[in-house]
């Protein structure tokens, strides 16, 4: 198929960006979206132009590095996938595809489609851990039975890949789904109880400090999340925060 691409080009964080049009031809429907971008970049390099910078790494939908906003949707039109797993069979010959970076005040553009998500790092550093040193002498892994239900729910929350689609798609640029997922994982496990109060307070405080917006329950994040992280995690985080504020 032949396509027209409208792509956000921006030299660096200081420069002003703009949409630029490109054409690609003979794109196979079996290609992944990023393989289509590879074709474009090969074309640009051969023409002596600068290729489009975009983040990507594992191309298996798990590292969370890829981050495009395609036709107005984080990770494009398919559901439950990251951009690297989006396939060209979702598009038709002659389509015009608009490709932008994830946009949020807390995700400044570094270049073209690459954004700076270090705000996520700082939130994790504020409390996204259990304080246990490596010793080899922690208690036996089976010492505390954990109900299958709780373990599975914790796993569902822990499956977040930190890509930022929830923020990019939210009209408030809220990071509540991302933070709620981490808070929930630990809130559901006995190991997470000891530091539960400080964890939720510190992570939420850091989230606010980074300039993410509030949650108004529109639920767009849950729809666009490539890993299907549920809104329940936001509710659980709010409950944890309420509990913490009473202690």
């Amino acid at each position: 198929m032949n396509l027209t691409l409208k792509i956000w080009r921006q030299k660096d964080s200081q420069s002003k960006g703009q949409m630029v049009d490109y054409k690609v031809t003979d794109i196979s429907e079996h290609m992944s979206f990023l393989e289509m971008m590879d074709v474009l970049n090969e074309q640009l390099v051969n023409a002596g132009e600068e290729p489009v910078a975009f983040d990507h790494d594992c191309r298996e939908g798990i590292c969370g590095m890829c981050s495009m906003y395609i036709n107005g949707e984080a990770h494009g039109p398919d559901r439950g996938v990251t951009t690297c797993q989006l396939h060209m069979r979702m598009f038709k010959d002659g389509d015009t595809i608009t490709i932008e970076p994830f946009r949020a005040a807390a995700f400044p553009v570094i270049k073209d489609l690459v954004v700076d998500r270090s705000s996520f790092e700082r939130i994790q550093q504020a409390g996204g851990y259990i304080s246990v040193n490596t010793s080899g002498n922690t208690q036996d892994a089976n010492a505390i039975p954990i109900s299958k239900h709780a373990a599975d729910e914790a796993m569902d929350a822990a499956t977040c890949i930190g890509c930022g689609a929830c923020v990019a798609t939210c009209k408030n640029s809220s990071a509540m789904l991302f933070v709620g997922a981490k808070v929930s994982q630990y809130a559901l496990l006995p190991q997470g109880q000891v530091e539960a109060v400080d964890r939720v307070k510190n992570m939420v405080a850091q989230m606010d400090l980074e300039g993410f917006g509030n949650c108004t329950n529109t639920g767009a994040c849950e729809v666009e999340c490539p890993k299907g992280i549920s809104l329940d995690n936001i509710a659980r985080m709010n409950r944890e925060l309420m509990k913490a504020s009473l202690k």
Binding site: Y129, I130, V132, T134, S135, G136, T138, Q139, D140, A141, N142, P145, I146, S147, K148, A151, D152, A154, M155, A158, Q185, Y186, L189, Q191, G192
Partner: peptide
């Protein structure tokens, strides 16, 4: 390693008795 990871909150799969 398994002991350490469980202590860190790694949600390994469990059976209905709550064990790994």
């Amino acid at each position: 390693i398994i002991d350490q990871c469980v202590a860190q909150g790694v949600p390994f799969a469990r059976d209905y008795g709550g064990l790994l």
